[in-house]
Design a protein around this nucleic acid. Structure first.
Length: 212
DNA sequence: TGATAGATCGGCT
DNA sequence: GCCGATCTATCAG
């Protein structure tokens, strides 16, 4: 088994709940965005905010590239979207509709404004913490949407710009069963530009996605 | 400098 | 199913 501390930020090795998981390297984000997006399905995203470990399995993502009119990076780099242009694995957190934070991982290479939006998780760790943060006991609503997911995991804009493979607050792992799922493509949610592109990837039949 | 649309969610009807 | 909340970036004037 590969030593966890060599590939993710220090400190995660003390989390006994994660010992059956394998670390993921930043390489997974260094490929074409349309390759990376489905590859992230099934991986386990965890945060440790305020000492509380929370996390779940990624069941829904969307791809955004620099040439894509629906992408924040389409018109070039700005103060808000600069993390999209960072090295692969850079965390991009932005405020949506003035109320909700959305979590993305930068893809391809430094200088390329591409990212994958993480839209939904199957809750796995510390459900009670997530219920408290979300203010609901309906587990299906804990992380079934980009804004819900960031709230459940305690993700804030402070994480924006950090590298997911070198953080003590957020990390990505692969579970033994990660590759067992059937990935389905569909049009992205809530956009008007390039709405026809089938760049939404989700676990077929999952009850944890935002829009079944 | 003002208007508006937006990668949303929750509450209300 | 509709609507309000409320921050950003962009575009029109």
């Amino acid at each position: 088994m590969i030593m966890i501390e060599s590939l993710v930020g220090p400190g995660w090795r003390h989390e006994s709940a994660l010992q059956h998981l394998a670390p993921v390297t930043a390489d997974i984000c260094a490929a074409d965005t349309l390759i990376v997006a489905p590859a992230l399905i099934g991986l386990v995203l965890v945060t440790r905010i305020d000492g509380l470990l929370t996390g779940g399995r990624i069941v829904e993502v969307e791809a955004y590239t620099q040439e894509d009119p629906a992408s924040h990076s389409f018109s070039g780099q700005t103060q808000r979207n600069r993390s999209m242009f960072g090295p692969p694995g850079t965390v991009y957190v932005y405020l949506s509709y003035g109320m909700h934070l959305c979590f993305n991982l930068a893809t391809e290479g430094e200088g390329r404004g591409c990212a994958v939006l993480i839209r939904a998780l199957e809750p796995l760790y510390a459900l009670e913490t997530m219920r408290l943060r979300r203010g609901t006991n309906v587990d299906r609503n804990l992380a079934s949407g980009p804004g819900k997911l960031t709230r459940a995991l305690g993700i804030s804009k402070e994480l924006d710009g950090s590298l997911i493979t070198a953080s003590d607050e957020i990390a990505l792992f692969s579970a033994p069963e990660s590759s067992q799922v059937e990935v389905r493509t569909s049009p992205r949610i809530g956009i008007t530009k390039a709405a026809e592109k089938p760049w939404r990837f989700s676990v077929a039949g999952s009850r944890w996605v935002s829009v079944p």
